[in-house]
Design a protein around this nucleic acid. Structure first.
Lengths: 201, 201
DNA sequence: ATCGGTCTTTGCGCTGGCGCAAATAACATA
DNA sequence: TATGTTATTTGCGCCAGCGCAAAGACCGAT
């Protein structure tokens, strides 16, 4: 553990800045200490595609450890972020020297993998409405995150238009309150009910 | 390495049999030596959902190592399969004792994770036609795998109806030959062209 | 206050893909 | 060869969601 911390660097960035961009050489791996960021993928055509949120305590940017030489996504801060980082090569050494750390990492990655596969399942079998509800409920209750409609669309695999229309309908039902880049869920139960299925009265 | 092999068990199953089912206690982890199998997820409603193929040389069923106590999916043999397996607990010990193995595993998992996220991106941004074409091209050229239309649908996130219609159209265009649970791609270039975009002449 | 940029909403038309239902084809078993 | 089972095809209708375009709303900076 001292070995780990001894080699750590620290970096702070502001909202809209990035720790790295898709395609950059994957020479560092990160642990987020404070803030929230968006890990976004780009389509071959260059548009924004899927995205994931990273919260304090999560790791990100570990592609370099896995034989990959560039980051597959962009790590953009949604709020001011403070993170620890290590050089990928040195981290590899550290992991070899402290196997229980490697196991810990394995567990984290495994969780991510299952998360991703669960999202795949949802994307293939579940309606936008329900995916969006899930995405909202996953967030901290008051959700101070400055997520644009576009961000939400990427998070649940749809378009900003559909997100806007759906959120608006929910606002008019009194289930949440919208603002520009802000959103407060007033009635989590209502959303939770939607997830089960809109047809279930 | 001798430590690893020393604790290995072997198991062989026939087509349509399974190494484990979704929900089973995740007490073992596997390495496929021969054959092909389908790792399929089930929706909460009980229907078939997404799926992934596993080929000889791939590992599967490692959920237990990652703090998960049951398998998230079902591992069903598409062809006769032979696999090595270890008790999850013992594998954990082995990994602690042989860090480079843990790193190797980390790399494998990382590749999987990126694969899954790439599929997410596709699912959100790309048409069924193109996803299906990709799925076919990923397979061994002659594709002796007995994949049903339902299987293919799960692999690329659509329905068996759409798969059937699409494949039929391609067969009539002369790009492949269909059979019950068999499929031979006659013109990979034609499919590859489709992936770039049907509008590109 | 004003201006420019970004984000959001909403009308409108359209279509890709879903999914039931029913016919057909391929296989397995005895 | 007959019979039940499972896989596949296809007609048909339908609708969720897309995406352009244009109009607002909000924000920050000067």
């Amino acid at each position: 553990m001292t070995l780990l911390l001894g080699h750590a660097h620290e970096k702070t960035i502001q909202r809209t800045e990035s720790f790295f961009h898709a395609g950059d050489a994957a020479a560092r791996c990160f642990l987020l200490l404070e803030g929230h960021l968006k890990l976004g993928q780009i389509t071959p055509a260059g548009e924004q595609g899927a995205a994931r949120l990273i919260a304090a305590g999560d790791i990100f940017g570990w592609a370099g450890l896995m034989d990959d030489h560039s980051y597959p996504g962009t790590a953009e801060a949604l709020t001011a972020c403070r993170a620890l980082w290590w050089e990928t090569e040195r981290m590899r050494q550290t992991l070899l020297a402290t196997p229980h750390l490697a196991l810990r990492l394995l567990a984290l990655l495994g969780r991510r993998l299952r998360e991703a596969e669960s999202r795949l399942l949802d994307l293939a079998t579940v309606r936008v409405e329900q995916r969006l509800a899930k995405a909202l409920l996953r967030q901290p209750a008051d959700l101070p995150l400055p997520l644009t409609r576009q961000d939400l669309a990427e998070l649940c695999g749809t378009t900003l238009y559909t997100v806007s229309r759906t959120l608006r309908a929910w606002e008019q039902a009194g289930w949440l309150r919208l603002g520009r880049g802000s959103l407060r869920v007033l009635s989590p139960p209502a959303l939770a009910a939607l997830i089960q299925g809109p047809d279930a009265s």
